[in-house]
Amino acid sequence: MTSISLRSIDAATAQTAIAAAAEHARSLGLPMSIAVCDHAGLLKAFVRMDGASQISLGIAQDKAYTSAATGLPTHRWHDFIKDDAPLLHGFVHTPRLVVFGGGFPIVEDGAVVGAIGLSGGHYSQDMECARAALKAIGAASND
């Protein structure tokens, strides 16, 4: 039998990322939902800031899931599919796939160990807050 070892983000690092993203969101005056998932896309930490919309809850989690599952920031997907009609009309119907900004994989030594997703502002603001979280935990944004 052969087995593999997988690395995953720990709870303390996930909470640090959440706190940094929330702090940056507060500085912008934006109530956001912030999700961090593990390497498999399973929720590890989450906060829905006071005043954040209900719809942002699921979108933040789906952005994190998309980035964990694909290893790409969510904003990269639009450029990848926009000029390919079969992908554009079919791929966007994939459950939990998000093709606009706010989700980033968390990569350590070349391996995806988790991901973060934010929702509550314009996607560019979601991206800005996610980058603040990544910086706080020493991860690159890989844009």
Results as ranks from 00 to 15, higher is better:
Ala21Cys: 13
Ala14Trp: 00
Ala40Leu: 11
Asp38Gln: 07
Ala130Glu: 10
His89Tyr: 14
Ser33Met: 11
Phe80Gly: 01
Asp84Arg: 13
Gly51Thr: 13
Arg48Met: 03
Ala111Gln: 15
Pro73His: 11
Leu134Thr: 05
Glu128Leu: 13
Gly29Cys: 08
Gln15Thr: 02
Val98Leu: 11
Trp77Phe: 14
Ser8Val: 06
Lys82Ile: 08
Ala12Gln: 13
Leu43Thr: 00
Gly90Cys: 02
Gln54His: 15
Gln125Asp: 12
Ser124Gly: 06
Tyr123Asn: 14
Val113Leu: 01
Gly101Trp: 09
Glu23Ala: 15
Asp62Tyr: 05
Ala21Lys: 04
Ala133Glu: 00
Met49Trp: 03
Arg131Pro: 00
Gly114Thr: 04
Phe91Asp: 01
Ala111Met: 08
Ser3Gly: 09
Val112Met: 08
Gly58Ser: 15
His78Cys: 04
Ile137His: 05
Leu134His: 01
Ile9Arg: 02
Ile55Lys: 08
Gly110Asn: 09
Val47Lys: 03
Asp109Lys: 14
Met1Gln: 07
Ala136Lys: 00
Phe100Ile: 03
Ala68Pro: 01
Met127Ser: 15
Gly114His: 03
Arg7His: 15
Arg131Trp: 10
Lys44Asp: 04
Ser141His: 08
Leu57Asp: 04
Gly138Ser: 09
Gly117Gln: 11
Ala85Val: 10
